[in-house]
C-alpha cells in the first residue's frame, strides 16, 4: 500500500494548503489563510461536498495536540513530538497545576526524576516563568509545572507525584 500522500501548496492571495489522502481514500485539507484563521476540510471517499471547520490558531493547536495522541485534560495541555529520525522517539511535554498535597515540597524531596524519569523544565508562578528550576525549588499552590519525558514517564508522574 502506498504511504499517505501529503501535498503542500502555496496559493497566491490565500495562503498555504496541506492535503492528505488517507489509506481509506478520504481526503483532509488544511489551509492556513492570510486572514489568520485556519480552515480544515474533510472529504469522504466518493463524496462531492466537503465539510469545513474554521479555527483560530489556538483552536488549531489544540486539535493538533489531540491528533498527536497526547494526553489532554480540560485545562491542562500536552504536546507530543515524534522524532522519526531517532527510532521514533516520542517526547511529551505536559503542563500540570500543582495540587495542595505537594505544596511546599521540593523537587529533590519528591524524587521526581528517580521515581518517574520525567523532568520538570519550567514552572509558571504568578505569570512569571522559572526555567529549569533547581532541585531545591519548592512548589506553591497555583504553580503550573511543565514536565517533559516519554509518554510512559509522564503517566508515571501523573500517577505517583500528582496524587501523593
Amino acid at each position: 500500500m502506498s504511504a499517505m500522500a501529503l501535498r503542500s501548496l502555496n496559493l497566491p492571495g490565500i495562503g498555504t494548503k496541506y492535503e492528505i489522502e488517507t489509506d481509506k481514500g478520504d481526503t483532509i485539507a488544511v489551509f492556513f489563510t492570510k486572514t489568520g484563521t485556519i480552515q480544515m476540510y474533510t472529504l469522504q471517499k466518493d463524496s462531492q461536498t466537503p465539510s469545513a471547520a474554521v479555527m483560530t490558531p489556538v483552536e488549531a493547536r489544540r486539535l493538533g495536540n489531540i491528533l498527536t495522541g497526547a494526553i489532554i485534560e480540560a485545562d491542562q495541555e500536552s504536546v507530543e513530538i515524534a522524532f522519526s529520525a531517532l527510532a521514533d522517539l516520542r517526547i511529551t511535554i505536559h503542563t500540570y497545576f500543582i495540587p495542595k498535597s505537594i505544596t511546599g515540597r521540593t523537587i529533590e524531596d519528591l524524587q521526581i526524576r528517580a521515581k518517574t524519569g520525567a523532568t520538570i523544565i519550567a514552572v509558571c508562578r504568578h505569570d512569571k516563568n522559572i526555567i529549569n528550576p533547581p532541585p531545591t525549588f519548592a512548589f506553591e499552590t497555583g504553580d503550573a509545572a511543565l514536565v517533559i519525558g516519554e509518554s510512559d514517564q509522564i503517566k508515571k508522574f501523573e500517577r505517583e507525584i500528582m496524587v501523593e
Binding site: I14, F31, T35, Q39, Y41, L43, A52, V54
Partner: peptide, 8 residues
C-alpha cells in the same frame, strides 16, 4: 472563497 469555505 475563504468565507464561503470553498477552498478545498
Amino acid at each position: 472563497l475563504i468565507e464561503n469555505r470553498k477552498l478545498m
